[in-house]
Nucleic acid binder design. Structure first.
Length: 278
DNA sequence: CCACAACCCTGAGGGC
DNA sequence: TGCCCTCAGGGTTGTG
């Protein structure tokens, strides 16, 4: 599941390779990959064709290809989406859902086994804001400080796990990095957000940032599906502290990691290091 | 605001 | 080998 570190890895790689290229055409192989509001594959292809890629940016888990004329091609990988750079004449993957031709003969392929991923074409800043609406702060931005997090947490009273998964609370975390961040912060996933002391909030801030930065420095976490723009796996799986490590010893105390279900999501933690205060 | 659940999807893995 | 069932989960939508 691509989260902020995985999307950031793809962004950085593509930025250096496709910036300056012109999109000369494209096609959809699975029409529902075109996301709302337009949800129109024909209009999307028509919209991007002839435009130059000015920059490759990221907002939360969205990739934003800035196109000439204030337009953008926005990509959300969801669960199994992959954005692959293909040299000319490379064979497409079997889950190819959309393809874009570039003016140097290369292609940008959107592959997605489970068809949850979405592509959006936006024409102008207003349309882009619509696609990126209701997103909370970027956790790696300078503006995301301990004080920011404290104010956000105290304005809510939800359990930490579902709250951190909520993209309108903080943007970019998913199931893997939430569990990792909570472990680093030594906080139980069911703790209420308004119950945290200042030192716990500081630890959570630190845990979020550290978990994400480690993910980026390892080029993302590949459990099974994630690949970077070159088709390579990320190396962060071996560095995970709790996620998918149920029954294995905690790296801090040696007791087994527990898995429970919270908000319909598998949730991994160490009951000893992350106790739930009564 | 918060909790819960269905939905969209397909492949992997378990049970028999 | 094969069939059925469950599970995996990001985000949206709807209900209470």
């Amino acid at each position: 599941m691509p989260e902020l570190p995985e999307v950031e890895t793809v962004r950085a790689d593509l930025q250096g390779r496709i910036t300056g290229r012109v999109i000369t055409g494209g096609q959809f192989l699975w029409d529902r990959t075109a996301g709302r509001p337009a949800a129109d594959p024909v209009a999307l292809i028509r919209g991007v064709t002839g435009r130059r890629i000015e920059a490759v940016e990221r907002r939360a888990k969205f990739l934003v290809l800035r196109l000439s004329g204030e337009a953008a091609l926005v990509v959300h990988l969801r669960m199994t989406g992959r954005l692959r750079f293909r040299e000319a004449a490379a064979l497409p993957g079997k889950a190819l859902r959309a393809a874009f031709m570039l003016d140097d003969g290369s292609e940008l392929h959107f592959e997605d086994q489970r068809k949850f991923g979405r592509l959006y074409f936006t024409d102008g800043a207003v349309a882009l804001d619509e696609v990126l609406a209701r997103l909370g702060p970027e956790p790696l931005d300078e503006a995301f400080t301990r004080d920011t997090l404290r104010d956000l947490l105290r304005a809510r009273r939800a359990q930490l796990k579902p709250l951190l998964l909520n993209q309108s609370f903080v943007a970019g975390l998913g199931n893997i990095y939430v569990d990792e961040a909570l472990f680093r912060a030594r906080l139980h996933p069911l703790r209420r957000s308004d119950s945290l002391e200042q030192d716990e909030i500081d630890r959570l801030h630190e845990g979020i940032v550290a978990a994400l930065l480690q993910g980026i420095s390892n080029r993302g976490t590949t459990l099974s599906d994630y690949r970077d723009a070159w088709g390579m796996t990320g190396k962060n799986k071996e560095r995970l502290l709790v996620f998918r490590r149920e029954g294995k010893p905690c790296t801090v105390c040696g007791k087994p990691i527990t898995k429970i279900r919270v908000a319909q999501r598998g949730t991994h933690f160490c009951p000893t290091c992350q106790p739930l205060p009564k």
